[in-house]
Amino acid sequence: MIKRSVIVSVVALVVIQFFHPAKNENGVMTDKDITRAYHVPDDVRKVLRRACYDCHSNSTVYPWYSKIQPVDWWLNDHVKEGKRHLNFSEFDTYSVKRKAKKLTEVAGTITDNEMPLSSYTVVHKDAILTDAEKTLVVNWARGLAAQVADTVKKL
């Protein structure tokens, strides 16, 4: 009975290797990207790309283990969830009110050490933000949120 269960499990693991979700690898930066729609200083842009864009843009850089199922499905769900909350590649499609809210949330999640997720930084050590990087991104996000909110007030 155990032998049969092991065989069935191995066969199932082999079969699922042939089924992969579509990759989040657009690679084309459109005018809707936050870095095209708003001023993003180079140092902030580098931090966003290194620590945020894999889950919060249309351009994920996949690690080698993403080719293994069921890890690929888990990563795909994780990226979809991240983009559902915030997608820097589509940022300029958001309403002005939503943009201000999302930027405020960026500052809050970084301040509260909620982002980047620890499950991500365990493998992506370069995504761990220094205190200086946190301050840099938080100050930029708060400043841009205020600028965007002023636009709402003028409307």
Rank of each mutant, 00 (worst) to 15 (best):
W64T: 07
T104A: 14
V71W: 06
A100L: 06
T109F: 15
H85K: 15
T60E: 03
W64R: 06
R84G: 11
V106D: 11
S66E: 08
R84Y: 13
K97R: 11
T109D: 15
K101C: 10
K101E: 15
V96M: 11
Y94Q: 12
Q69Y: 04
T93C: 03
H85M: 15
V96Y: 10
Y65G: 08
V79T: 04
W64M: 10
W74P: 03
K102F: 13
H85D: 14
Y65E: 07
E105W: 14
Y62H: 04
Y62R: 07
R84A: 15
L75D: 03
D92M: 12
P70W: 00
H85N: 15
H85C: 13
T93H: 00
D72T: 10
A107P: 06
V106N: 10
V79I: 13
L75C: 08
W73C: 04
I110P: 07
E81F: 12
W73N: 06
L103N: 02
E90N: 12
P63H: 06
I110M: 00
V79D: 02
A100M: 08
V106P: 02
K97V: 08
T104V: 11
F88R: 02
T60N: 00
S89T: 01
K101M: 13
K67C: 00
K80R: 13
W74A: 11
V61T: 04
W64N: 01
E81Q: 13
D92A: 15
A100T: 00
G82T: 05
H85E: 15
A100F: 06
K67T: 04
K102I: 14
V71F: 12
T109L: 14
T93Y: 03
E105L: 15
L103C: 03
E81Y: 14
D77N: 15
H85I: 15
Q69S: 05
V106Y: 09
A100G: 02
R84W: 11
W64I: 12
K67P: 07
P63M: 09
Y65L: 09
N87E: 04
T93K: 07
Y94T: 01
H85G: 15
N87F: 08
P70N: 03
T93D: 06
D72L: 06
V61S: 09
V79N: 04
K83F: 08
W64L: 10
A107R: 03
W64E: 09
F88Q: 03
Q69N: 04
Q69I: 00
V61N: 05
Y94W: 12
K97W: 08
Y62M: 05
Y94F: 07
L103Y: 06
H78S: 13
K67M: 01
K101A: 13
E90R: 13
L75Y: 12
E90A: 11
W73H: 02
V71G: 00
N87D: 07
P63A: 10
